[in-house]
C-alpha cells in the first residue's frame, strides 16, 4: 500500500477581484502518494495552477483542508509554510523565476542560505547540482547570459538544493522549444526514478502527461474522474460561453 504524502480534502479557493468573487477551486479532493509522478492537466483558467500552489504550500485554501505527511497545513501562518517549502518542497516555474542579479551558483545556494546551511556546504552542494546538470561552466554566469534550457536546469538545481521530498513544477517546459522541453522532462523522470522524488507537474501539454504515472484532470475548478464527467463539464462550459455571447 502506497504511503500518503499529500491529501487535499474538499478544497475551495475564492479570489476577490474588486467587487466580484471569483471561485477558482470548487471542492477539490485528491491524494498524492509518496514517490509518485503526477500530472495536473486542464485548460487555462481551470484552476490547475492554484491547485498546485495549494499542494505546494505556497497558498492556503479558502475552505477545506490540506495535509502534508498527515499534518494539516491549510491553516498554518505564512512563516511556517515558508519553512515547509524551504525544507520539503522544491519549485520549478514556467518563467524560471531566477534572481537576475545573482549568479547561477548563488541562485542555487539561496534556498540553503534561508535554511541556515553553512557557506562551505552550500557552495559544495550547489556546484555538485549544477555539475550534475552539465552546467559546470556556468557557475558564475547570471541568468540573463544563459539560454532558456540552461536557466530551467538552474531552477531545477535550485529546487533540489535542500533535497526536498517533493518537486512541484508549474508548466516547466512552457517557455522552451520541444527538444529542450524533452530534455527537461528527462531530468524529472530521472529524479523520479533514481532519486525517488515525488513530482507534481502542471501542464496543458498532453505529451508531457504521457511521461507521468497518474494524471489529474481539472476543469472549471473541479476534478474530472472519467470521460462522462469530462464531456459534461465541456458541454457546460460551451453552453455558458454561448449564453454569454
Amino acid at each position: 500500500m502506497a504511503e500518503e504524502l499529500i491529501k487535499v480534502e474538499d478544497v475551495w479557493k475564492t479570489y476577490k477581484l474588486g467587487e466580484i468573487d471569483l471561485t477558482v477551486l470548487k471542492g477539490v479532493s485528491l491524494v498524492i502518494n509518496k514517490g509518485s509522478f503526477v500530472a495536473i492537466m486542464g485548460p487555462s483558467g481551470s484552476g490547475k495552477s492554484t491547485l498546485l500552489h495549494i499542494v505546494g504550500a505556497l497558498d492556503v485554501p479558502s475552505k477545506g483542508k490540506v495535509f502534508l505527511e498527515g499534518k494539516e497545513i491549510s491553516e498554518l501562518p505564512e512563516d511556517d509554510l515558508a519553512q515547509i517549502r524551504g525544507r520539503k518542497i522544491g519549485f520549478v516555474f514556467q518563467q524560471f523565476n531566477l534572481l537576475h542579479n545573482l549568479t547561477a551558483l548563488e541562485n542555487v545556494m539561496l534556498p540553503m542560505t534561508f535554511q541556515g546551511i553553512p557557506e562551505k556546504e552550500r557552495m559544495e552542494r550547489a556546484k555538485e547540482l549544477l555539475t550534475d546538470f552539465g552546467l559546470e561552466k556556468r557557475f558564475f554566469h547570471k541568468p540573463g547570459e544563459l539560454s532558456g534550457g540552461e536557466r530551467q536546469r538552474i531552477a531545477i538545481a535550485r529546487a533540489l538544493s535542500n533535497d526536498p521530498e517533493i518537486i512541484v513544477a508549474d508548466e516547466p517546459t512552457g517557455n522552451l522549444d520541444s527538444t529542450t522541453g524533452e530534455k527537461i522532462m528527462d531530468i524529472f523522470i530521472d529524479l523520479h526514478r533514481n532519486q525517488k522524488k515525488t513530482i507534481i507537474v502542471v501542464t496543458h501539454d498532453p505529451h508531457i502527461a504521457d511521461y507521468t504515472e497518474e494524471t489529474i484532470n481539472i476543469m472549471d475548478g473541479q476534478i474530472i474522474h472519467n470521460h462522462l464527467e469530462k464531456e459534461a463539464a465541456e458541454e457546460k462550459i460551451l453552453w455558458e460561453r454561448q449564453k454569454n455571447t
Binding site: 515558508a82 523565476n97 531566477l98
Partner: peptide, 10 residues
C-alpha cells in the same frame, strides 16, 4: 515572491 517560494520567511 521567488525568495518566499524557496523558503524565505517574512
Amino acid at each position: 515572491g521567488i525568495m518566499k517560494a524557496v523558503g524565505a520567511k517574512g
